[in-house]
Design a protein around this nucleic acid. Structure first.
Lengths: 252, 252
DNA sequence: GGTCCCGCCTCTCGCTACGTGAGGGTCAAG
DNA sequence: CTTGACCCTCACGTAGCGAGAGGCGGGACC
């Protein structure tokens, strides 16, 4: 019971071209040909194709599949392990990218009217890798991280604009409070710190007090964030950081 | 202050070839050339390169970067959102692959001496997509899933052999119990069901009673798994499934 | 002024896994 | 004998460069 390319292609849900390709590179050559030169696949060929497709689904490159199949004594476990590592590595990189994109989106909320050029200028020698890695360390694989990933991706431009407005309003009020001379551990400062935390929870992820103090440290430790708050009002990064810590201690 | 390709390449940490490529495709052409034909990059070119690299770090294809940059009125937010979706989609696919690989590894424990061809034969018209999707639905993004992902990847061949030995030993004892005529909700059957659950916990992930009963349903519902248990002893899939349910009800 | 060497130039092929025609035979049905 | 579905073999295109080949430019040293 020989099959033609088209039949095999439909059965295996690949294109004819794919089968031609496998034939070209010697990964899967049909058992025979008709006098007219048509490829004739046998059942054994179909089985081999199944295996090939299975490995392909696992992300193996064709060459490696050929190695595995053509060396029946070879142990596929090392291949599987290598592939496993490789895939998890790639997943890690992609998650870093996602984190970086979210940062870029958030950056828009901080300075939404800037052109891309200008926005990147703000960050100066901004290194997305480093930041993404840091985000990954802190939130990677946690529930908070997934939450943020899911929600941030769905925000519309209007959402961002509302977010930005809220943010600016909060910034104004916080700057006023500083100007009034209230200490960073005053009830008013703590209230605004708490509002800051809840805004993050509403917009991004459940921001626990622990995470919040982590952010606070980042605001003074990471010049990109420091610069942002200092631009609203000099001294604000440190003042906010202190208020967040005071708030966390007081409520915990 | 014009720069040569080499200088720009070092400053931006890209290769000269990359700059040539960007020039070729018109993404970044130097402002001028020396009489000898050397590329002469100006500060503005450097800035553009910065932006290009930033977008590249986010995983944007060069063509799209060109679009964004050459249309200064365009809003990059939709691009960011699309890219965000695209990346999370890719992550999902990769995680499916990882799940499928883990399944393949686990399959080895069930029948470790088989050649790759034979192993895939066991699964018949096995569809990794469907199964991976199912695994994703059940475990995707959960702590259990991550645990398994991390641990499975590190197992050596010896680990798998130990796992296989344990597994076979348990299978023998379970088959004997069945032969003895003990009902599936007898204390002995429940004890072996519990052992089954703990083996999963030790080797793969914290297997709660809820997850365990989910597996039990799969053993009778999914012919691939049914076939595996039926081969040990006819009727075993249903018997084990019942024992697992009894065990879960009794301990909860 | 000659020579040395580094850096620059422009090709051009190579990599993955096929997609997409171009141009032309083959086969079963009407 | 024609039609239409199917098959064949080239052969180029894809993204984003890496890795040369073969040849010129420019500053330093003798």
């Amino acid at each position: 019971m020989p099959y033609t390319v088209g039949q095999v292609a439909r059965a295996a849900r690949v294109t004819v071209r794919t089968l031609h390709h496998y034939d070209e590179i010697g990964l899967l050559s049909p058992s025979g040909r008709t006098p007219a030169g048509y490829r004739r696949y046998e059942d054994a060929d179909l089985e081999r194709l199944q295996v090939i497709r299975a490995y392909r689904e696992l992300g193996f490159p064709l060459e490696e599949i050929a190695e595995i199949l053509d060396d029946p004594g070879a142990d596929p476990l090392p291949h599987l392990r290598r592939q496993h590592e490789l895939l998890t590595g790639r997943i890690g990189k992609l998650r870093e990218m996602v984190a970086a994109i979210e940062l870029a989106m958030e950056a828009r909320t901080l300075n939404i009217e800037l052109t891309p050029e200008e926005r990147f200028e703000v960050f100066g020698d901004f290194d997305p890798d480093a930041h993404a890695e840091e985000a990954e360390r802190r939130w990677g694989g946690t529930e908070a991280y997934r939450q943020s990933t899911e929600r941030v991706g769905r925000y519309s431009k209007e959402d961002w604009l509302r977010n930005k407005a809220e943010n600016e309003d909060w910034g104004r009020r916080f700057a006023e409070l500083m100007a009034s001379g209230a200490p960073a551990d005053s009830p008013e400062a703590m209230a605004l710190a708490e509002e800051h935390r809840q805004r993050i929870t509403r917009w991004f992820y459940d921001c626990s007090y622990e995470i919040h103090t982590g952010l606070a440290d980042m605001y003074v430790g990471d010049p990109r964030f420091t610069a942002y708050y200092e631009k609203i009002r000099p001294g604000m990064a440190a003042y906010l950081s202190e208020a967040i810590h005071a708030n966390a201690i007081n409520r915990a």
